[in-house]
């Protein structure tokens, strides 16, 4: 009985979503007049946000990867918030989990896994670092890069039962990265006119030293996400001795 209800509910939900996303109308911004006055500069906005992103990203932010420009520049405040969500979750996990005695004893992994993961770890870390350092040039950025780094540490945790993250180092990295992000935002308030605004020269688009504050923020996010995710995994692992 419950299964039937569940199936009916799930298919109804699916149908609703299918209907809602199947007919995405292309709003014609040229023809229609919206009397919406921009409260900040008083102009009448009549511009589609996505097309603004597509046509102006390179000039306004200096980043070649438009996704990065949106994530770090246009909607940088959301990114600060999302990083904070992850930070809150990591803090909550470490606040609530407490060590209990008598976890299951885990068998040692075999030689190939142990030596192999040692061999692969530097490359995984390098890939992660590459992904977030080159966030403004190639696909990827702070979140994926940090996740790749965390999965490298996860590999070590899986193959060595006695491998633990150094708690102090992880929390210091996490804090320093978060402080860097928020502090750069405040510097934007001081040197430019608003929070998180770019105050560094944009440089030549396509080079690694370009796009102003984007690379700095993305490196901070990479370190932060990496340390947070690995600390969550580490905290969950701790019980099993």
């Amino acid at each position: 009985m419950r299964k039937v209800v569940a199936i009916i509910l799930a298919s109804a939900f699916f149908a609703v979503l299918l209907v809602s996303f199947s007919n995405i109308q292309q709003a014609d911004y040229g023809e229609k007049e919206y009397y919406y006055q921009n409260p900040i500069n008083g102009s009448y906005a009549n511009e589609s946000v996505p097309s603004h992103y597509i046509s102006n990203t390179k000039n306004e932010t200096g980043a070649v990867n438009a996704v990065t420009a949106i994530v770090v520049e246009y909607r940088g405040f959301d990114t600060l918030g999302e990083v904070t969500v992850l930070f809150t979750a990591a803090t909550g996990v470490s606040f609530l989990l407490y060590k209990t005695r008598g976890g299951k004893k885990r068998t040692e992994a075999n030689l190939i896994l142990k030596e192999g993961s040692k061999l692969v770890l530097p490359f995984i870390l390098l890939t992660g670092a590459y992904i977030f350092i080159h966030g403004h040039l190639t696909p990827g950025g702070g979140f994926p890069g940090g996740a790749v780094i965390a999965s490298g540490f996860l590999l070590m945790m899986l193959s060595y039962p006695k491998f633990f993250m150094k708690e102090r180092a992880v929390s210091v990295t996490e804090s320093m990265a978060g402080i860097t992000f928020a502090f750069i935002g405040l510097l934007g308030l001081v040197f430019a006119s608003s929070f998180l605004q770019n105050f560094l020269p944009l440089g030549d688009a396509g080079y690694i030293l370009s796009a102003g504050i984007i690379p700095i923020i993305y490196i901070a996010i990479g370190f932060k996400v990496g340390s947070e995710l690995s600390s969550i995994a580490d905290k969950l692992k701790e019980v099993q001795k």
Partner: peptide, 26 residues
Amino acid sequence: APDVAITEASIGAGLTMAIFVYAIGR
């Protein structure tokens, strides 16, 4: 959407699964 693909692969397939497995172990 390569950006989303990288994130989904490392978080969805890698980390979330490992965290679930650890939580089930508890």
